[in-house]
């Protein structure tokens, strides 16, 4: 059994698909959203601390982004993930059904030349 050309083609194809989506993220005005279960609400991007679930979950928000600083979920993956700052970045805590999402509007123009 050997590695064949077809193997390389399949792997390249599977790598190109996600890369295509990563390259096509919109980059307009940033908006921060907190998703908990079915709800989605916007949070203003300014320096603040948000406490949820009786203080078990603590979220730090700055003008650039947001992160979980405390969470009572097993594994604490969301805390280790760190900041959500750029367009499309998401920090998710699956056991507590929480996620921080930065969404950006699509800009009307790709570029403006003068």
């Amino acid at each position: 059994m050997k590695i064949t050309k077809f193997d390389i083609i399949v792997i390249c194809l599977l790598i190109i698909i996600p890369l295509f989506y990563i390259a096509h993220q919109p980059n307009g005005n940033k908006k921060l959203f907190l998703i908990s279960g079915n709800e989605k609400k916007e949070i203003q991007l300014k320096d603040q601390i948000i406490k949820l679930n009786n203080g078990d979950v603590v979220i730090e928000v700055t003008k650039d982004g947001a992160r979980f600083i405390e969470n009572n979920c097993p594994g604490n993956i969301c805390v280790k993930t760190g900041w959500a700052e750029r367009c499309g970045q998401t920090v998710a805590c699956v056991p507590n059904r929480l996620a921080l999402v930065i969404e950006c509007e699509k800009e009307a123009f790709d570029a403006v030349s003068r």
Partner: peptide, 28 residues
């Protein structure tokens, strides 16, 4: 599954391309 059971928002798919990239590589 996560989208339908836990975090019911399309925003979770923002993470998908990055994880797919990793997943294809670790799968290889």
């Amino acid at each position: 599954v996560v989208k339908n059971l836990y975090i019911k928002s399309d925003a979770i798919y923002n993470l998908l391309p990055y994880f797919t990239l990793f997943s294809v590589l670790t799968g290889a």
